[in-house]
Design a protein around this nucleic acid. Structure first.
Length: 905
RNA sequence: GGGCAGAUAGCUCAGGUGGUCCAGAGCGCUUGCCUUACAAGCAAGAGGUCGGGAGUUCGACUCUCCCUCUGCCCACCA
């Protein structure tokens, strides 16, 4: 027992700063792969350095820390690998915005200086993010922090590119990709979001060369007609059969293009005739390939019409659309137009509509990688929680398409490919190697590919690069890889299942022959009370730091997991004006409750002292045996909840146990027990209480590390360097649990609650202790009740006494609990009408239940088919109903005779 | 168009494998309390035909099917 003063209130900020510094000072988070203890490892999904963390991260990181801290206390050698992601496009966009505010563009700055600016940005926001993570109290191994642009990661990225290239799994090709004119870069399919947009569907006249008629063609993108190379119809479309093989004029041009047949055309859509523009549409591209059509490009990378568009050249694509439409109308080439709602792809990062665009890009062949990765999940080597994500995963993996990995950006891993002036190229580690590979003499100039790789091309190597795989470009084997891979758990958002989770599985299987992780926990999506995702632009995503400062890190951690059931979205009320999340009070109040329970125990221990003499089993009172049993049961339940990734259940179990069982019942009973004990006994009871409380701290430490560490040191003398953080997890002997004890105590609880209800009806002042008469049931519970009248006295409060003759208590309020009748005397002039009404209601309720119960018991089918214990249970219920009913009826009769008698007199 | 998840008290949500609380918590609400730690608290209370409809079963909030609504993901056809 510590002799220091016990503060009347918990001040989170101070304690958090102090303990985090201590934990770091003693290097408690550093993993030692050579310790020989069983390993437990987690890879932290590296946050983007684009900005600050939001509450999605807070939940995600808290969950990981809970598992890390829990396993550390269980004696595992834990290793949590932290890091940051360079987030290519996203970060580049942010820095360009910053530049724009200064009136600059990246082109003005030049590549080198621009990249320097991005590094400055990274230092700044990376720093904020790390500060936020520390404020939350997370216990990752900071010595292993990795940034995806670190040299060691770059080395691995380069090697992987070259290996895949040599294997033919990376190739360069002219394909239709998603082009962002604003970013001047290609995007992967995953970086495009679709939105429903209403545009005008135009029907244009493509006139036959000989002037004998026309084909009506529907389009929403008339500005692309300049790149049309054919008009296609479905082979079985009778309407246009005769046109096939003839030529039509592309409107506004002098070009004639053939009419062709292709299965891909949907005859039921639009006019059934499709203008084929292979350079500007993925479907058209395929058709063009099939028919050997030429590729015409009418847009520049900036999204401006080029010389092919004749008089329209130089117009921006949407302006061009308006002008072209206008012109077509003037010339009578526009047959009709109608509003048409369809999905249009937008760039996720820069927001403008994506342009399907033909260009030279680098791709990864996904099919060979996807197959083993799919199997690993289907056969259960990797388990998803909740499991239903497996279906989504499977669907994507079976339909996976090649991954466009080149980006026309400056911020990212440069593509390790070198080109000769005459267009030959190869992947290589250096120009020298490239020359060697191409068999060139040293004087041939080479140019490295200006593009960089998709961010996820470094992220998918995360399980490997965090463990220093190929950190120097050569070394395949490291101690970390041997010990910590596969990792145990990945906690991540379901929205990056394709971007990241799937690809990590592919890469780790490919390059290491093993799965990257065993369990994947997909977190909840945090939404505001309107159901919207948190986002900075909506203003509904407050900065976690001030909220942590206001409520405490433990409160934030606890509230998040308390509110976030596995796989369900979480709605939180967010006060946008105050940038506050009021529900954080849940956790704050809980920490406060825990604190005060500790303070109470401290005060009592000061008062009574502590006795080392272990209490004999027989000397433990029922409330003590009960709370011990509840502790054992709670511990067991929390363990299985955590093992099955029902983390919110873990939080709820702890909340209910601490608040209801420990504080509301045990501590209240302890107050009475201490009063009735000899000083010697009281000291023993304090010891018992304190030990149990310590168990609670151990149990809670993974969620609320700070307040528990603080209490753990306040209540006990600890050796230098001793921390709850690295103490053993809570444990309880099996025999602590006793169903019988819990049954007995719950009877007393029910009696207390019923007696309090009666007492509340009378509205007595707290000091008043009315007599309470108890008429026991005849089921053997009588002894328990008789032995614990003192407890009822204190908890109700009242003066409880057992009596069988209650006839003298004619004027009383009554209640029946499991056949036990409680009587609270009332004054002669008390108005009984409310009580009579209540009795009637109660009797009616019980009669209904009895009826249902009897219907069951008289049902032959039920008796035959229901399991024995269920039938047994129904019989017991019948008895209990009968006894309660008879007592209530007696009571009613008595009161009715009284009231009528009263009226007569 | 395909798939997934959800619909329980005014609000936010709990309710593994159908009968053990005849539906629970927190917040909000009503009433009474500064009762030997805690008013960020204590005690009592009001409030729900568990989205609708069928079915399986001795028995369904809990399983199956259909419907309605909500959210998300995937695919995108001019």
């Amino acid at each position: 027992m510590s002799g220091e003063r016990f503060p009347t209130a918990y001040t989170p900020n101070q304690a958090e700063r102090r303990w985090y510094a201590e934990w770091l000072r003693y290097d408690l988070f550093r993993a030692d792969p050579n310790s020989g203890r069983p390993p437990y490892s987690i890879l932290m999904p590296p946050p983007n350095v684009t900005g600050m963390l939001h509450f999605g991260h807070v939940l995600n990181i808290t969950l990981q820390d809970i598992y890390i801290r829990w396993h550390r206390m269980l004696g595992y050698e834990v290793c949590w690998f932290p890091g940051l992601d360079h987030a290519g496009i996203a970060t580049q966009v942010k820095v360009e915005q910053q530049l724009a505010a200064e009136g600059l563009t990246r082109q003005q700055l030049g590549r080198e200086r621009f990249v320097e600016r991005v590094w400055q940005w990274k230092e700044r926001y990376g720093g904020i993010i790390l500060e936020q993570m520390r404020a939350l109290g997370i216990s990752c191994d900071w010595s292993r922090t990795l940034f995806t642009m670190d040299e060691s990661a770059s080395n691995a990225v380069r090697e992987v590119f070259i290996r895949l290239y040599d294997e033919g799994l990376i190739y360069r090709g002219k394909r239709i990709i998603n082009w962002s004119p604003r970013l001047q870069s290609a995007l992967s399919d995953e970086e495009v979001v679709y939105r429903s947009v209403t545009e005008e569907l135009l029907v244009l006249r493509y006139e036959l060369e000989d002037g004998s008629g026309h084909i009506p063609v529907a389009t929403v993108r008339p500005e692309t007609i300049f790149a049309d190379v054919a008009v296609a119809i479905h082979p079985e479309d009778e309407r246009y059969k005769t046109y096939v093989g003839r030529r039509v004029r592309v409107p506004l041009t002098d070009r004639f293009v053939p009419v062709i047949e292709d299965e891909a055309v949907d005859p039921t859509f639009g006019t059934g005739a499709l203008k084929v523009t292979p350079a500007h549409d993925p479907l058209d591209f395929e058709i063009g390939q099939r028919h050997g059509l030429p590729l015409l490009v009418c847009l520049t990378p900036e999204g401006v019409l080029n010389e092919l568009a004749g008089p329209f050249a130089g117009l921006e694509r949407f302006e061009a659309r308006r002008r072209v439409t206008e012109r077509l109308r003037e010339l009578g080439l526009l047959e009709r137009s109608e509003p048409y709602t369809h999905n249009v792809g937008f760039s996720e990062r820069s927001g403008e509509p994506v342009e399907p665009y033909i260009s030279d890009q680098w791709f990864v062949r996904m099919k060979p990688l996807a197959e083993p990765a799919l199997q690993a999940v289907l056969d259960g080597r990797i388990r998803f929680h909740p499991e239903h994500w497996v279906k989504t995963y499977e669907h994507w993996m079976r339909n996976v398409r090649d991954w466009c990995i080149s980006r026309q950006l400056w911020w990212g891993h440069r593509i390790p490919v070198y080109y000769t002036p005459d267009g030959r190229y190869t992947a290589a580690r250096s120009p020298e190697e490239a020359r060697q590979r191409l068999g060139l003499s040293p004087d041939v100039p080479l140019e490295q590919d200006p593009d960089v790789l998709d961010t996820w091309f470094s992220s998918w190597l995360w399980p490997l690069t965090t463990m220093r795989w190929l950190a120097d470009g050569k070394t395949e084997e490291t101690t970390d890889l041997k010990v910590f891979l596969p990792t145990n758990l990945l906690v991540t958002a379901p929205e990056i299942i394709f971007f990241w989770v799937a690809r990590m599985i592919m890469a780790t299987l490919k390059f290491r022959g093993t799965i990257p992780f065993r369990d994947v926990y997909f977190t909840s999506v945090i939404r505001d009370s309107y159901g919207r995702k948190l986002s900075k632009s909506l203003g509904n995503s407050p900065d976690p730091l001030p909220i942590i400062a206001k409520y405490g890190a433990d409160a934030v951690r606890f509230t998040m997991i308390y509110l976030a059931p596995l796989g369900q979205d979480v709605r939180m009320k967010i006060d946008e004006r105050a940038q506050d999340i009021p529900s954080m009070e849940i956790g704050r109040n809980f920490a406060n409750k825990l604190w005060n329970a500790g303070r109470f125990l401290w005060l009592k221990c000061q008062q009574y002292g502590l006795s080392d003499a272990a209490l004999l089993e027989s000397e433990l009172a029922l409330p003590e045996r009960w709370i011990r049993s509840r502790f054992a049961a709670t511990l067991q339940a929390t363990e299985s909840a955590l093992r099955e990734y029902r983390v919110h259940e873990y939080a709820r179990l702890l909340y209910d146990f601490v608040w209801s069982d420990f504080c509301d019942w045990y501590i209240e009973a302890l107050k009475v027990l201490l009063q009735r004990s000899t000083p010697q006994e009281a000291a023993c009871r304090c010891r018992f209480a304190l030990d149990l409380y310590e168990g609670i701290l151990r149990l809670l430490h993974p969620v609320t590390p700070f307040v528990t560490e603080e209490l753990w040191h306040l209540l006990w003398e600890r050796r230098e360097g001793e921390f709850l953080c690295t103490a053993a997890a809570a444990s309880a002997p099996r025999e602590w649990y006793s169903a019988e004890t819990e049954e007995a105590f719950s009877l007393l609880q029910a009696l207390v609650e019923e007696a309090r209800r009666l007492r509340a009806i009378l509205g007595l002042p707290p000091q008043e202790r009315p007599p309470l008469f108890i008429r026991p049931a005849d089921d053997g519970t009588s002894a328990i009740v008789r032995e614990h009248l003192w407890l009822l006295d204190a908890l109700v409060p009242c003066q409880a006494q057992v009596g069988t003759d209650h006839s003298t208590l004619d004027k009383a309020l009554s209640g029946v609990v499991r056949g036990i009748e409680l009587l609270l005397p009332i004054s002669a002039d008390y108005d009984l009408s409310a009580e009579l009404e209540r009795l009637h209601r109660e009797i009616a309720r019980l009669e209904r239940l009895l009826e249902e119960n009897r219907a069951k018991l008289h049902n032959e089918a039920f008796l035959q088919r229901a399991p024995q214990h269920v039938i047994e249970r129904e019989r017991e219920k019948e008895q209990s109903f009968l006894q309660s009913l008879s007592r209530l009826r007696e009571r009613l009769q008595l009161l009715e005779s009284l009231t009528s008698g009263g009226r007569d007199a």
